[in-house]
């Protein structure tokens, strides 16, 4: 059993942090890797990239948004309760090396995934600018941690309630215009990664993105997570989750992550009927 030792609610309760006892995973995990979690016997296997690991304490931290039945079920788990299964660390870690000036662009819960990567890139001697995007101020997460993990922090909100009004790409464009950026890392919703990659390809700046398609096993066995990278099929679970952002077929990915949307909706609605507290 994988017991929850700390739990926080963020972004008005739509985003949840769980720190989970998983010593074996914590001792090996590196930034950019993910775990698969399953709440109970009937549960689905859900892949989530780790937001933090603490090898001394033997814990890992995940931060997720409640979007369907499985994440709503995760949300019900309190401190002292446990996930039945946590599998990992999976996927290839982020390549952390000194390249110079790096911009880390995070959107939504992608900021959580971005945090350990940003810190590692800074620790490796890079000058790191972080750009965070959210729909509004209330939905922005990890601002302080990201400020500490970077040299410079820029914030954009869609509605202008905090930071600059607009999208992360607006802030990124200004940084790129300075002409001294060697690399961009972008993690967030697929459309965000698509538009960041589109912009950076105009500036010919190398861009890394982290993909989170539908998966079952996470070990290269099912092929459910196939993505097209530079015209070739890759498995995000073992070949990724990070890829060259300029090579990703985002339109295909956006369709594929919708594969079960009708089933998921039905399942979530059934669950909300049973547990009205979690219907939002």
């Amino acid at each position: 059993m994988f017991t929850i030792v700390n739990r926080e609610e963020m972004a008005e309760g739509t985003v949840i942090l769980n720190e989970i006892e998983a010593p074996r995973i914590a001792s090996r995990a590196k930034p950019g890797q993910f775990v698969i979690l399953k709440a109970n016997e009937e549960g689905e296997r859900i892949p989530l990239t780790m937001a933090e690991t603490d090898p001394q304490k033997g814990t890992i931290t995940i931060i997720y948004m409640v979007v369907g039945k499985s994440t709503a079920l995760f949300k019900t788990l309190q401190v002292g309760e446990a996930y039945q299964d946590v599998i990992g660390p999976l996927g290839k870690p982020t390549t952390v090396e000194k390249v110079g000036n790096i911009v880390c662009v995070g959107g939504g819960t992608g900021i959580a995934v971005m945090h350990p990567i940003t810190r590692a890139l800074k620790d490796a001697g890079n000058h790191v600018t972080a750009i965070l995007g959210a729909r509004s101020k209330d939905l922005l997460i990890l601002e302080e941690k990201m400020a500490a993990a970077s040299h410079e922090l820029l914030i954009t909100t869609d509605d202008g309630s905090y930071g600059r009004k607009g999208f992360v790409t607006d802030a990124l464009k200004d940084v790129l215009d300075k002409g001294d950026t060697q690399m961009v890392v972008a993690i967030g919703p697929v459309p965000m990664m698509k538009f960041v990659s589109k912009l950076t390809s105009e500036y010919q700046v190398k861009t890394i993105v982290s993909l989170n398609p539908i998966m079952v096993d996470g070990t290269g066995m099912c092929g459910g997570c196939r993505v097209t990278i530079g015209g070739k099929t890759k498995f995000a679970c073992v070949d990724g989750p990070e890829f060259d952002g300029h090579q990703v077929d985002y339109d295909e990915l956006m369709l594929r992550i919708q594969a079960y949307c009708e089933d998921e909706k039905r399942c979530f609605e059934d669950y909300c009927m049973l547990k009205p507290d979690y219907a939002r």
């Binding site: 689905e44 039945k69 079952v216 092929g223 196939r226």
Partner: peptide, 28 residues
């Protein structure tokens, strides 16, 4: 990579290991 094309590994893993034939009683 169209939706609706699955490897047998994925299809059978969903059905057998995850017991998806019982969906929505199970979550997969």
């Amino acid at each position: 990579n169209l939706i609706g094309i699955l490897s047998a590994n994925e299809y059978l893993t969903r059905a057998n290991l995850m017991k998806a034939y019982l969906f929505p009683e199970v979550d997969t």
